[in-house]
Amino acid sequence: MDVEAHRVIELPRERVATYAMDWRNDAQWTQGITRAELTEQAPGGGFGVGAEVRRTAHFLGRRIDYVLRVLAHAPPELLDMSSVAGPFPMRVTYRFEEHPSGTLASIRVRGDASGFYGLAGWLMAPLVRRNLRKDLRDLAAKA
């Protein structure tokens, strides 16, 4: 699965990226996430490359607990994370680009579903795409 969604948000890039890259806001704008906690700080402290965030989400009627490790953190342009624990390997990338109307925000999710989620694989991409579009809608409203 490799799914990406984009949206122009009529707010400054720094404002949108700062809100989206703060793990404490994950449950406010990311579909299905009910909890997020910083479980490992970056080597220099705080949130950055090497930090890990545990997320609790609900997808297809099931609870999913997974941990994302920050691979790249370049505010206000990029946040790239990869799962180190969870039901299947995945990578989540947020990008924020300047746009004449504000910010072009993009979210890309790549993953290799297995088990129950592998059986529902034909459903995964359309559902993830729909959720990413809702994420970006909510990000525009809350940032």
Rank of each mutant, 00 (worst) to 15 (best):
T39V: 11
F59Q: 10
A42Q: 07
R55F: 12
R69D: 00
G44I: 02
M81N: 07
V84L: 02
F59R: 00
A72L: 14
R63D: 06
V67A: 09
V53S: 04
E37I: 08
G45S: 05
H73Y: 15
L71G: 13
H73D: 04
V84Q: 13
E77V: 05
V67R: 03
G48Q: 07
I64M: 07
V67D: 07
A36T: 00
Y66T: 01
A72T: 01
R63E: 15
P76R: 10
I64L: 13
A51K: 02
Y66W: 10
L79R: 11
V70W: 02
S82I: 05
V84G: 13
I64V: 11
R54I: 09
A42N: 06
H58L: 00
L78Y: 09
I64A: 12
L38Y: 06
Y66L: 01
V67E: 07
G46Y: 09
I64W: 14
R63M: 05
R69M: 11
D80N: 10
L71T: 12
Q41I: 07
V70N: 02
Y66N: 00
V70L: 01
E77L: 02
L71Y: 08
A36E: 05
R54G: 03
H73N: 11
L60P: 08
E37N: 13
A57R: 10
H73G: 08
G46I: 14
M81V: 08
G46M: 12
M81H: 09
R62I: 07
L71C: 08
F59C: 00
P43I: 00
H73I: 11
V84A: 07
V49F: 14
Q41W: 13
R62F: 14
L68E: 13
V53M: 01
V67Q: 02
H58P: 06
V84N: 00
V67Y: 12
P75H: 09
F47A: 00
T56L: 08
F47R: 06
S83E: 01
I64F: 15
E37T: 11
P76A: 13
A51T: 04
T56I: 15
R55H: 14
F59N: 07
R63W: 11
G44N: 09
F59W: 12
Y66A: 01
E40R: 13
V70I: 10
L68M: 10
S82G: 13
E52L: 12
V49T: 00
R69S: 04
L68I: 06
L78S: 14
V67L: 02
F59G: 03
H73V: 14
V67T: 15
V53L: 00
S83P: 06
L60F: 15
A36D: 12
D65C: 04
V84K: 09
E52P: 10
G48A: 09
D80C: 02
V84W: 09
A74M: 11
P75Y: 03
T56A: 05
L68K: 09
L78D: 05
V70G: 08
L79Y: 00
P76H: 11
D80A: 08
S83N: 06
E52W: 04
M81S: 10
S82V: 14
F47S: 03
R63N: 00
E77A: 04
A57Y: 07
V70H: 01
A51G: 05
P43E: 00
M81F: 10
